[in-house]
């Protein structure tokens, strides 16, 4: 029962709220960079409500079931990941072995839901977008896994998020070590790609394939996808915070520290997105399988040496 409360309060409502707020921060900063005024705080929420009121259209020849079920799969998995992460942060002792693996696998599901939704649209542009999304997943997954190994090694070969958090409470944040710093750089790039933000917004690429997998989505399913993306904007930085920056604690003044860390990460992601052009998918693959993987391997090597 306690899990249910966690799921509804932390996993869904709080995450959705923070995610919507973060997407406002993102839009506002982008607007200021481009000398625009930017939207008011409630704009992301208003957008969602507006989409809920719009008509839902399904393309002819599409598999209706897969088309409508895909957004639910993505949203559900994000809620579940968020619940696991919150539970870990607030009760580091009461977690299960291997929750890192569960989180890593569940974090693939949002991409998977976008891919399946795109394929189900029976639209060539959506198919192209989905195939790019899949290739992007393949490219960042390798350095992403390697980078996650660094906290795993430093925490004493544990596959438990709670133990990594406890380790950081006792020994200082993992970001402070050389290996941790390198791995952090790598994972930041991977998160940028996981969020499909510029320079890795190749799957959506509005200017060439008109939104890719999302091209046929409208009304409520689109709202669910938007909500999922906004929630990911919270969940992924939160995951980095747990792995590298000591997580989020409610005791004492730590919570202000936690909020600052989170806002810093979001600002960093936004700055990267606003100062780079979009790359091609093969360039992204070369980037992730080349320099990023080598950097991540160096980080793992340093971590094994104890640095």
């Amino acid at each position: 029962m306690i899990y249910l409360i966690y799921l509804i309060i932390f996993g869904f409502f709080l995450t959705a709220l923070i995610g919507l707020f973060a997407s406002w921060v993102d839009r506002k900063v982008t607007a200021r960079v481009q000398y625009r005024v930017g939207p008011p705080v409630l704009q992301p929420l208003i957008d969602l409500v507006k989409l809920l009121g719009k008509e839902t259209m399904v393309p002819k020849g599409a598999s209706k079931f897969s088309f409508l079920a895909a957004p639910l799969l993505g949203l559900g998995s994000v809620i579940l990941v968020s619940t696991i992460l919150w539970f870990n942060c607030l009760n580091p002792q009461r977690t299960f072995i291997g929750d890192i693996i569960v989180v890593v696998y569940l974090l693939v599901l949002p991409s998977l839901s976008i891919i399946i939704g795109g394929f189900a649209s029976a639209n060539p542009l959506a198919s192209i977008g989905s195939s790019r999304e899949m290739k992007l997943v393949l490219s960042y997954e390798l350095p992403f896994l390697l980078a996650i190994l660094v906290p795993v090694i430093q925490g004493g070969f544990t596959l438990r998020l709670g133990e990594i958090l406890t380790y950081q409470v006792q020994n200082g944040v993992i970001l402070g070590s050389w290996s941790g710093f390198l791995a952090f750089l790598v994972i930041l790039m991977c998160v940028q790609a996981k969020l499909a933000l510029v320079p890795f917004d190749i799957p959506e690429a509005e200017t060439e394939i008109v939104g890719g997998p999302l091209i046929e989505y409208s009304g409520t399913p689109l709202a669910v996808y938007k909500l999922m993306k906004n929630m990911l904007l919270f969940v992924l930085p939160f995951f980095i915070m747990i792995l590298f920056m000591g997580g989020f604690r409610l005791s004492g003044a730590h919570w202000i520290n936690g909020i600052l860390k989170y806002l810093g990460l979001v600002a960093l992601i936004t700055v990267i997105r606003n100062t780079n052009p979009r790359v091609r998918i093969d360039q992204a693959m070369r980037f992730f399988w080349g320099p990023m993987t080598i950097l991540a391997m160096m980080a793992v090597f340093l971590a094994l040496k104890g640095l």
Binding site: L52, K60, L68, L72, L75, S121, N123, P124, A223, V224
Partner: peptide
């Protein structure tokens, strides 16, 4: 939870359209 959102948005009223290319 996702299904509830679908219910809020009245997904049941679907309209079929041609794909947009």
């Amino acid at each position: 939870i996702g299904l509830l959102i679908y219910f809020l948005g009245r997904v049941a009223k679907l309209r079929q359209t041609d794909p947009f290319i």
